[in-house]
């Protein structure tokens, strides 16, 4: 053999290129197909009952969805790293009650209340995150334990007490009921946070590193990514968002009891998974997760509008989740098989 090897001629790899665009299309398809399903659902319901898209109808829908969307955004950051945070429902409950207790009969400003909620959430998130990342214990178990602990603290503190809307300063309630150019504040807040998170996850190194950790922890280690710090940060973020959501809960409903958002953790995880964030980490976007949350909320509203027994809601949500993950999985399997056969044909042709 000689040492003067010319750069080998470009081997025609056209099949790979088309395969890659196919793969891209499928990855993008998840968000598109959920959005499509959402549009169809809304359109169909509108045709059956035009009141569904009345000003008030739309407003209600957005208001109902906004807190779930927020929580889905926070949860996505954790799930993308191949972890899970089951404590979010409890954090919302604790934060809502704490904020209520804090403002009751006072005239604290909106900002103070929100910061309090976020601070409570961050503390909860940091504890869970530290246990998962530095304690190296399974996320599901730890956050299940945190679910109980935070819930217990919340109940113990509340002792069945209820904060009613009349105790809450108007400024705070105004955040829940007010609107900007006809759009309520809450959905706007969710949208801003969603867009910011999406931009961060897409355009910042540490955002991309969350995906890297979930996609292959081993490769992440070799690439020198500070895995523990990133996972801790993801939990702190999820906690912060949940705490914030608790404060918004207070603003929205005014009346809070200890078991607000009880059991929401599984709804949030469902929304995230329906939205295409794989529970095994590494893929999915917060846009998808938000769409998933919106879809789940919309189904609830649609059932009401169409006067379908609300008892169906749970069953439909469950069936939808199973359908979404099954279709996703089957498409993925087909794709992998297609890529395998395609590249084989290419190799044999060479």
């Amino acid at each position: 053999m000689t040492t003067t090897i010319e750069s080998p001629p470009d081997t025609a790899k056209a099949p790979q290129r088309s395969a890659s665009s196919l793969v891209d299309a499928v990855f993008r398809a998840r968000e598109i197909s959920i959005a499509g399903a959402l549009v169809l659902l809304i359109l169909g319901t509108y045709l059956a009952n035009p009141l569904f898209l009345s000003d008030q109808g739309v407003k209600d829908l957005l208001l109902n969805a906004s807190i779930l969307v927020l929580l889905a955004v926070g949860q996505s950051a954790v799930v993308i790293t191949r972890n899970i945070d089951l404590s979010v429902g409890s954090v919302v409950g604790l934060s809502a009650f704490a904020c209520g207790k804090f403002v009751a009969g006072t005239d604290h400003g909106v900002l103070t209340v929100m910061l309090l909620g976020i601070a409570i959430g961050v503390v909860c998130g940091l504890v869970s995150g530290a246990l998962v990342s530095f304690g190296r214990v399974p996320a599901l178990v730890v956050t299940l334990g945190m679910l109980y602990i935070i819930q217990g603290i919340d109940y113990w503190w509340a002792q069945g007490e209820q904060i009613s809307a009349s105790d809450v300063p108007d400024a705070v309630l105004g955040l829940g009921s007010g609107s900007l150019l006809g759009v309520p504040y809450l959905p706007l807040i969710s949208l801003v946070l969603l867009a910011a998170t999406a931009y961060f996850l897409r355009s910042y190194r540490s955002g991309r590193e969350l995906y890297a950790i979930g996609s292959s922890p081993e490769a992440a280690r070799l690439a020198g990514i500070p895995i523990r710090r990133r996972v801790l940060a993801a939990y702190a973020f999820s906690g912060a968002v949940a705490g914030f959501a608790g404060a918004l809960w207070l603003a929205r409903f005014g009346t809070v009891v200890a078991d607000n958002a009880h059991g929401w953790e599984l709804t949030v995880v469902s929304a995230v998974v329906v939205g295409g964030v794989a529970i095994t980490g590494g893929t999915g976007t917060v846009w998808g997760a938000a769409l998933g949350a919106l879809l789940l909320t919309t189904i609830g509203s649609v059932l009401v509008v169409l006067k379908v027994d609300s008892f169906w809601q749970g069953a439909i949500t469950g069936a939808l989740l199973l359908l979404a993950i099954s279709v996703d999985r089957i498409v993925n399997l087909r794709m992998t098989a297609a890529l395998r056969k395609r590249s084989a044909r290419h190799d044999h042709g060479a």
């Binding site: 599984l266 469902s270 529970i279 008892f311 169906w312 069953a315 469950g318 199973l322």
Partner: peptide, 12 residues
């Protein structure tokens, strides 16, 4: 993931 789905389904 599966049993989060059937959790909702069966309760539903």
């Amino acid at each position: 993931a599966v049993t989060i789905g059937t959790l909702a389904l069966y309760r539903g």
